[in-house]
Computed example of a mutant assay.
Amino acid sequence: MRSGLRIIRNALALCVALVASSCGDEFGPGSRLSTVRILGIRSDTPYVRPGATFTTDILAYDGRADRSRPMHLYWLEDICFSPTDGKPEDCYRQLEAKYPRNEDLSSRVTEGKQMTFAMPADASTGSPPRLALVFAAACAGHLELVGSAEGYPSSVPFACVDQGRRLDANDFVFAFMRIYVSNDLTNANPTPSGVTLDRVPLPIDRPFSFPHCTVQSIDDCPARKLAVTIGDESQEVDPTSGPPGGELLQEQIWSSFFVSSGKLESESLILFDARHGRTSHAENEYRGPTVPGDVDLIVVTHDNRSGVAFQSFKLKAE
């Protein structure tokens, strides 16, 4: 499954829509909100014309128990063009030539949730559309260029540093998003209208209360149904999916789920298939939590052409 965002952590590139191996009793690392996380990067126009501007924003989450060092969001101001197969390794070599090593890059990056980029007018396009990458980081310190690890040219060449100490994956995540450059093709972000829990729409302006689970093992808790509400109009034809004059496929659309406590049955669900449209029974299951408290639920919906939508909800287990 191809996603517009990949997270790089400990020199490994992980697609956010893929299920990772389990670590912990309640949920695996893909849905776990216990560290600094970037859950999605969204562009207002996933397909951009040469000479146009586009604005990106980050959905980040700080799940650390100790937040004495605040999380910062940074954008590299460079747009990297045409990396091989959409992978960032070629970009890393370009970026390493632009920044000084082992220096605080705060004056060379932009801090904040949003960033507006200008696509160069000479970013010529063809068929398929030209591919560009933009980079961002969540870091409980400042960014430094340290170079890729020896023997691992695909490892991230940037580090998060605080008081001279390189921070680990609890405090640092580096991410990129693909942007497509085209004179005539377009793509709209998916437009989910909400999320339901046991068929009840979750409110966006207040917490949704429900009883906490009273059994000892979270696996014995009742399974509550989670579903994304989204219209058929979100699925567009993918104009690059077939040969000229041949049959074109539609977009694939899927949602990734994240919770701060409790257990999810699936970390992602396909909502629309490229050939058959809307999938049946696209429901997730949520169990727990086993103690009362507040729960953050975040849903990130993707299409396979870098379209992204964010939804965040507050739950209250009583």
Rank of each mutant, 00 (worst) to 15 (best):
V48P: 05
N102S: 12
F117W: 07
F117K: 11
P120N: 07
D104A: 10
S21P: 06
Q235D: 05
V16C: 01
N10G: 00
W75F: 00
T84S: 14
V109Q: 05
A20P: 06
L39W: 03
S124R: 11
T125V: 08
L315Y: 05
D168L: 14
Q216L: 10
F258P: 09
L167V: 14
F174T: 05
R305S: 05
D232V: 03
K225V: 03
S260L: 07
L39R: 04
L95T: 09
H142C: 06
G63V: 08
D168T: 14
P129N: 07
S154E: 13
G288A: 00
I218H: 01
P289L: 03
L5M: 14
A65F: 11
G141F: 02
S255M: 11
L59T: 03
S31T: 15
D303Q: 07
R305P: 00
S306N: 10
V195L: 02
R108N: 13
D294M: 10
T110P: 00
T240W: 06
A149G: 05
R206M: 02
P120T: 08
Q114M: 05
P83Q: 05
Q311T: 04
W254R: 15
Q235L: 06
R108Y: 13
D238C: 02
C80V: 09
V19W: 13
S209W: 07
Y92V: 08
M115C: 08
T279C: 09
L269D: 14
L14S: 13
S34W: 09
I58Q: 12
Y99Q: 12
S268L: 12
D220N: 15
D78R: 13
D303F: 10
G293Q: 01
L14W: 14
A60D: 07
P222T: 01
V134F: 02
V16A: 08
E236P: 01
Y47L: 04
F310S: 02
D198S: 07
H281A: 11
V16P: 02
A159H: 02
E233G: 01
R32C: 10
Y92I: 09
D232L: 05
R69V: 00
G126M: 13
S312G: 08
F27Q: 13
P190W: 11
T290W: 00
